[in-house]
Measured scan of single mutants.
Amino acid sequence: SGNANTETLPSGWEQRKDPHGRTYYVDHNTRTTTWERPQPLPPGWERR
C-alpha cells in the first residue's frame, strides 16, 4: 500500500531518479529540486 519512501517526505515532495540512477527530490510547492533529502517538519510546526 504505497511506497514507504514517499510516506516520510513532507507534503508536496517527490523522490525521483536522474538518468544516472542518482536519487533527487522534487519540491512541487516551490518547483525546485535538491539532492538533499528533505526533513519532515518537527511535530507542532506548520509550514507557512
Rank of each mutant, 00 (worst) to 15 (best):
R31M: 05
E14G: 02
L41S: 14
E14A: 06
R37C: 06
A4E: 10
E7C: 08
R37K: 14
N29L: 05
S1T: 13
G2W: 11
R48H: 15
T30C: 04
G44C: 11
E14K: 04
D27M: 00
Y25P: 07
H20L: 13
G44P: 13
T6M: 13
G2L: 12
T33A: 06
H20W: 07
N3C: 09
S1G: 10
W35T: 04
R48L: 09
D18F: 00
G44F: 08
D27S: 02
R47H: 14
T32N: 09
G2R: 12
Q15I: 15
T8R: 13
P38T: 01
T30N: 08
H28I: 12
W35C: 03
R16M: 09
R47A: 14
E46P: 07
Q15K: 08
P43W: 08
Q39N: 14
T30S: 09
E14I: 02
P40Q: 08
W45D: 15
P43F: 10
R37D: 00
S1M: 07
E36F: 15
H28P: 01
H20I: 04
R16S: 07
W13K: 01
H28E: 05
P19N: 09
E14W: 00
G2H: 03
T33K: 07
Y24K: 01
R47C: 14
P10C: 05
L41I: 14
H28R: 06
R31D: 07
W13E: 06
D18S: 08
W13H: 00
E46Q: 12
P43A: 12
L9P: 03
N29G: 08
T6Q: 09
S11R: 11
G2M: 10
N29M: 03
N5S: 10
N3L: 08
T32E: 05
E7D: 09
W45F: 14
G44V: 07
R37P: 11
N3K: 13
G21E: 00
Y24G: 04
T33S: 10
T23V: 12
R37H: 04
P10R: 05
P38Y: 01
T30A: 07
P43L: 08
G21L: 02
R48N: 00
T6C: 13
E36V: 15
E7Y: 09
R48E: 15
R22A: 10
T34S: 12
G44A: 12
E36Y: 15
G12A: 01
H28V: 07
N3P: 07
W45R: 15
P19E: 11
T34D: 00
E14L: 03
H28N: 09
P10I: 03
R37N: 06
W13T: 03
W45M: 14
Y25M: 03
P40G: 11
T23L: 10
R37E: 07
Y25Q: 06
Q39M: 11
R31A: 09
T6K: 15
L41C: 11
L9H: 07
Q39T: 14
G12N: 11
G2D: 15
E7F: 08
W35F: 12
P42R: 08
R16E: 06
T33L: 04
Y25F: 13
T6P: 07
L41Y: 05
H28F: 03
Y25C: 01
L9Q: 09
T30G: 05
G2T: 15
D18Y: 00
Y25I: 01
S1L: 11
T34E: 02
Y25V: 02
S1I: 09
N3A: 09
R31I: 00
L41P: 14
E46W: 01
R48P: 15
S11E: 08
D18A: 02
R48C: 07
Y24Q: 03
G12C: 03
L41T: 14
P42D: 14
E7G: 04
S1F: 09
R16Y: 04
D18Q: 04
T34G: 03
P43T: 09
H28G: 08
R47N: 15
A4P: 11
R22V: 11
R48M: 09
Y25E: 03
D18T: 09
P38S: 01
D18K: 00
T30P: 00
W45N: 15
